[in-house]
Simulated assay, not measured.
Amino acid sequence: MQQVGSKAILAGAQVIDPRALPARIREPRRRLRNNVGRTWVLHRRRVVRIAAAVMALVAAGVLYQVRTPILDGATALRDVGLGQLGHTSFAIGEISITGQSLASEQSIFDALGVEPHISSVSFDAEAARQRIAELPAVKTVSIRKIYPGDVSVTILEKVPVARWRVDGVTFVVDAEGEQIGEDHGAYGELPLVVGDGAADDALVMIRALEQYPRLQDGLVALSRIADRRWDLIYDTGLRVQLPELGVAQALHRLDGYQSDYQLLDRDVTQIDLRVASIVAVRPTQSEEEDEDK
C-alpha cells in the first residue's frame, strides 16, 4: 500500500475562508423531526405528563357530553337486571302471615301487592306495611324480607271488646267502638250490644257491669235505646230498663235487690229503674189474662 504524505495531500489544496463555504440546506420536515427528537430526549417525562393531562381533560369532556345516554343505559340495565333477578333466585316464593284472626289472609295478601315474578330486591316492604296497617283489624304490622325470596308478615290486631249486631249482621268492635271485623261465631264470649250507637258507648257500660257479677248471670244482650240509655236483656226474656243518667246508682240498687230478693229470678218480664226512687216491675201474664185483654 502506498502511503501519501501530508505534503502530497496539500499540494492541490486552496486556502478558502470558511464563511465562503455554502450552508447546508435542511428541509422543514427534517428540521421538525430533529426538534421533536431533541425535545423528547431532553423533556420526556414532562411531555408524558402533559399528554396524560390533556387526554384526561378530553375524556372528561366527552363523558360530560354523553352523560345522559350513559345514565339512561345504566337505568335500563338495572331494570333488566332486577327483572332477571325476579325470574331467578330472588323471586318472591313464600309469604308467611302470622298473628291475624279478624283480618283475612286474602285482604292482607292483597294489601301486600306482591305481583307475579316480582323480586325481593325490588319489593317495597315499607309501602306494603303502610297499606296493611290501614286494615280495620290491624293495630301494628311488621314486614321482613328474608333473602333470597321469602317475606314474613307479623300482625298485631286490635283487641275486640264487644259484638255489635246491626241490620242482622254481627260485627266485632274495639274499645273505640270501631268495627274491626265480622263475628262468624268465634267471639261468642264477648258481650252483645244491639241498636244504633250501641258500639260507641259499649265499653263504658261493659266496664260498669263488671262491678256486679250477679247481674251478668243470664245476661244475653245490652240494648241501646234511642242512642240515649240502656236496657239489660236476659235469657228468660226479662228486660231491665236503666235510666239515661245515674246508671251506676241504678245498677247498684238492682244488685242489692238481687242479693236480698232474687228479683231477677222472679216471674216478671220487666223491671223499670228509670225513676231513682221507684222500682217498677211487670209480672208475667198468664195466657188467660192475655185472652181477657
Rank of each mutant, 00 (worst) to 15 (best):
I278T: 03
D290M: 12
S104A: 02
A125T: 03
I50P: 03
S122E: 05
Y64L: 11
L32C: 14
V141L: 05
D265Y: 11
A51C: 15
E105W: 00
H43W: 06
N34V: 02
S107D: 06
Q130C: 01
Y187P: 14
D255L: 00
A59F: 06
V114C: 09
E244C: 01
V159T: 13
Y261D: 11
A186K: 05
I50E: 08
R214D: 10
L232I: 02
R49F: 04
Q270V: 06
R67W: 04
A59G: 12
D124A: 04
E178I: 13
R67I: 00
F90E: 05
R163L: 06
P116N: 05
Q179F: 12
Q179E: 14
D110Y: 07
I225V: 01
V204Q: 09
I50S: 09
Q3A: 12
V159S: 13
T236E: 12
I132H: 11
Q14M: 12
A56T: 12
Q285C: 06
Y257M: 09
L135Q: 01
A250K: 04
A11R: 07
G81Y: 03
P243T: 02
Q65G: 10
Q84A: 09
Q100I: 05
R44N: 01
V247K: 00
G168F: 01
D183N: 13
Y147Q: 06
V193R: 00
A198H: 01
L102W: 05
V275L: 03
V151W: 02
G5W: 14
D231A: 03
S259A: 11
E291D: 13
I50F: 11
V4E: 14
M205I: 01
E291M: 10
V153D: 07
D183K: 15
Q285I: 13
G149T: 06
L42M: 08
V279Y: 07
T154Q: 07
L232P: 03
H184W: 08
Y234F: 02
R44M: 09
Y187F: 06
N34P: 07
H43E: 04
D267R: 13
Y147W: 02
A250G: 00
I132S: 09
T68I: 12
L273E: 03
I233R: 04
A91C: 09
M1W: 08
A137K: 14
R19S: 15
E126A: 05
G93Q: 09
